[in-house]
Design a protein around this nucleic acid. Structure first.
Lengths: 126, 126
DNA sequence: GTTTTTGCAAACTTTTTGCATGCGG
DNA sequence: CCGCATGCAAAAAGTTTGCAAAAAC
């Protein structure tokens, strides 16, 4: 039996830093650009995969075929308002217990997570 | 000035029929398979794009990198419960005026649409 | 020193584009 | 007819995989 562990390497630190810098969901390519290609895209994908698995980031899709990732700050789950014009994203928090209770009543699914995103126009683009 | 129009062609009829057959969001590839490759995938993509534009289908993403499409039956917008194990989908309707009002109060975004999906385990997979 | 991680190249998947041919009204 | 739509081929975009070399510990 050998010891196993996840290593906190330089690339991983940088990717974490990048995720921390953005306060919204970003794509692998955006992280890559922010880090000025210092880290290979492959490693970014693999790191994001890992971070998702150990539950420190959340994955979102805004409908343009790119996956986006965001640090889960203090386990607080939030939602997004996405501007259809400029792509800007605003975070929004909501008490959704009611909503979840309603769904639990209506269905016999065992619900583990949910995604809620709003699309429209930001103040600047209206 | 020439007249312009959208034609209701055989491929489009078939794609419509396929969308009507499934009662859940399906990918271009699933439509293609259902139609036994009779229609080229390219045309399926183009037709879906068109139907989205004229607002007779809705686009959803469940997080696996494929876009899915579903007929908008009598303008009623609904949400989905997705089984993380078998991929089965259940439709769910909800009164969400409260939710939308809350968002409108909290933010100065002009909201045009929203997406709400639940992920978990269906009765069979629990 | 041994295991985990990285970078590079190549593959794969989904979606898009260009263009000549064909169908619809 | 004549324009819109289709199929085919090829490309693009995003993501994944294999493997040898490098970094952690």
């Amino acid at each position: 039996m050998t010891k196993i562990g996840i290593r906190y390497t330089k690339p991983r630190k940088l990717i974490f830093k990048a995720l921390n810098h953005f306060s919204k969901p970003v794509s692998a390519a955006e992280i890559n650009f922010y880090l000025k290609n210092k880290i290979d895209l492959t490693s970014i994908y693999r790191t994001l995969e890992l971070m998702k698995k150990i539950n420190i980031i959340e994955e979102t899709e805004f409908g343009d075929g790119k996956k986006r990732y965001e640090l889960m700050k203090n386990n607080k789950h939030h939602h997004h308002l996405v501007c259809e014009n400029c792509g800007d994203v605003e975070n929004i928090e909501m008490k959704e217990d009611n909503l979840l209770d309603k769904v639990k009543n209506k269905s016999s699914f065992l619900i583990k997570e949910h995604k809620l995103e709003f699309f429209g126009l930001c103040p600047n683009c209206q």
